[in-house]
Amino acid sequence: MLKYANPTHFLRLVAAVLPWLWLACVGLLGVGLYMTFFIAPADYQQGDTVRIMYIHVPAAWLSMFAYSIMTLSALGTLVWRHPLADAAQQAAAPLGAVFTFICLITGSLWGKPMWGTWWVWDARLTSVLVLFLIYLGLVALWNTIEEPTKAARTAAIFTLVGVVNIPIIKFSVDWWNTLHQPASVMRMGGPTIHPTMLWPLLIMAVGASLLFLALHLMAVRNVILQRRLRRLSYMAAQAGEQEMAS
């Protein structure tokens, strides 16, 4: 049944959903940012720099979420050979890379005042850096293979290999980190997070997720349209050849 699902239906659905999605996204992010800057308290130790958390944590969450989307789509590609799954995979890779990058940059900006240096080889930062490299590899893979269905299958296999490996990498980096330096002193606002910090964080996380969703849907739409364009140009080329022959 999935095999015959029609990308055209999907495009119609996207057109109907997108305006509402953007509305909700802008609304939530607006409220979230307002709370971040004017309502959430400054940390008694970290001062205003703690506000970076409201960007950093949602970005970190989305860096994983994008990979989950890619994994599900990869299964869709390999098991059901569904073109929508191909497009969803392709669209998620650069978005995942960007959110991971935001996570790294905000982590680095946060690190400067906290640790007095732009970069520390902290276990968590390092794992995210490796995840970022995997995303870049995927984007490179997509850019290198011209044939869309083949690119989708290749990327799907690589994505699934990553799913198996990412926990192993995380575990290794934790081991490596504890071996080379004492546990980091960084703590995020104590063991329990105060509601005045939790609410903006949750709102920002939901808003950022909606932002991801909206961008992802738009990117999937672009991929589908690009493929149609590709097919049309191919058919035009064929028709041209036929005319030349006759």
Partner: peptide
């Protein structure tokens, strides 16, 4: 080049425990 880009991140665990 693509091969190196794809493979090297996945060799991190081997490198860590090998050097350890």
């Amino acid at each position: 080049l693509l091969l190196a880009i794809l493979v090297l991140p996945f060799t991190v665990p081997v490198l860590i425990f090998g050097v350890s």
